[in-house]
Each structure stands twice: as structure tokens, then as C-alpha cells.
Simulated scan of single mutants.
Amino acid sequence: MAEQKIGTGLKLALEMGPIAAFFIGYVMLKDRVFSIGGTNYDGFIIVTAAFIPLMILTTAILWKLTGKLSRMQIATVILVVVFGGLSVWLNDERFFKMKPTMIYALFAVALGIGLARGQSWLQLVMGEALPMKPAGWMILTKRLALFFAFLAIANEVVWRSFSTEIWVNFKTFGLTAALFVFFMAQGRLMAEHGDAPHDEDEPGQNGTGV
């Protein structure tokens, strides 16, 4: 399927919508308990059960509209299904809380493997959207691998040490804000190593020197 462009607002809604819906659902149902088939499920488990198909649906829509999914998006959906499904099946919220840890740890390891091979796998994912010289990509990849490792550790500390409500707020706002701040902080790196495309009509670029 050929890659297609969609509006930034729609893309953001499809990517962030399920997270926003999870947070709203949790706030509404966190103090309620539902009896299904003789088993009691708290609001967190019910919201998790709803989040899984919503995540699959929005990802499928994104794929249908754009014609492609990144490896990160595919990995995220798989881990949501696996760890969210385990939480619902075993009625144990701990598995879903582990999901961000596994996602960020997986990304950190994947980027680290690429670096060990002298490659920036991040460039393969974001290269078209962010033109930058190879040296810049290597630096950004190293920083992001370390940052993902930090986020994995931070998630483990928060979900193991604090209440479910604090973890939900951390997951919804803390992790999102941390990623935003990280990429904003890379502005200088991107400016120094930016690889702007050359204009074919510039002197010397068309073979005539005119």
C-alpha cells in the first residue's frame, strides 16, 4: 500500500486519543467494582479491557489512512494486547502497569543494538521527517536510548512505589511531557547537524556552474 499523508491533527488524535480515553475512563470508573461472570473487576481492569480494542482500532485506522506503520507503533500495539490482555485475563492490574517498562526497555535495547553495529536505527524510522547528518543521528540515537532506559526505570519505580491513581497520572501526563521536553531539548543538536536539501537550481548544482 502506498504511503499517504494525513493531517497533523487527525494523526495526533489517532495516536493520543486512546491514551486520553483511558485516563478519562479511569477517572470515571476508578472507584467502581463490576461483577462479571461471578468475578469482581475494578474500574482499572474494565478501562484496560476497553483500551485494548480501541488501541487496535485507532492503529488500524492510522494504517488504512497512511499506508504504513512504524516498527515502534507495531511493537506498542503488540505489547498493549499482551500485557493488557494478561491484566484482564488474570484480573491483575500489575501486568498493564509493566507495559510502559517493556515498551521503553524494548526501544532502548533496539536502539542500543543498532549503535553497537554502528547504525542509527532511529534514522530509519524518522529520517524522512527529520533531515539530519549521520553524526547527528548517532548522537540523537545514543541520547534517546539512554532516555528510554531512564523512562523504563522510572515507570518501574512509580508503579511499584505509588498508588494506581498516581501511576495513571504519571503514565498519561508525566511520560508524555518527558518525551516532549526531551525532543525540545534536542533543538540545538538538530540545528547543528541539520541536513537541509540542496536547491537543484543553485550555482554549481546543475552541472553548468551558471
Rank of each mutant, 00 (worst) to 15 (best):
K5N: 12
I6R: 02
L10D: 08
L12N: 05
M16P: 05
M16C: 06
G17K: 03
A20T: 02
F23R: 01
L29V: 01
D31V: 08
R32N: 13
R32H: 09
N40F: 05
D42V: 04
D42I: 06
G43L: 06
I45P: 13
A50R: 03
I52D: 09
L57R: 08
A60M: 14
L62W: 12
L65I: 01
R71G: 11
I74Q: 07
V77A: 05
V77D: 06
V77N: 11
V82L: 14
G84K: 00
L86Q: 00
L86I: 00
L86F: 01
R94A: 10
F96N: 06
F96L: 03
K97D: 06
M98R: 03
M98Y: 13
M98N: 08
M102D: 01
I103E: 05
Y104K: 05
Y104N: 15
A110N: 15
A110T: 15
G112R: 03
I113M: 10
L115Y: 06
A116V: 05
Q119T: 02
Q119D: 08
M126C: 03
G127T: 04
M132R: 07
P134H: 04
G136Y: 00
M138N: 11
M138T: 10
M138C: 10
T141N: 13
R143G: 11
L144H: 12
A149S: 08
I153R: 00
V158M: 07
V158C: 08
W159L: 09
R160T: 00
F162Q: 00
I166F: 05
W167Q: 15
N169V: 03
N169C: 11
F170H: 13
F170W: 11
K171S: 13
G174M: 12
L175Y: 00
A178L: 13
A178R: 11
F180N: 06
F183Y: 07
M190I: 03
A191C: 07
E192H: 07
D195C: 14
A196C: 05
D201K: 11
E202R: 01
P203C: 02
G207E: 09
V210Q: 15
V210D: 15
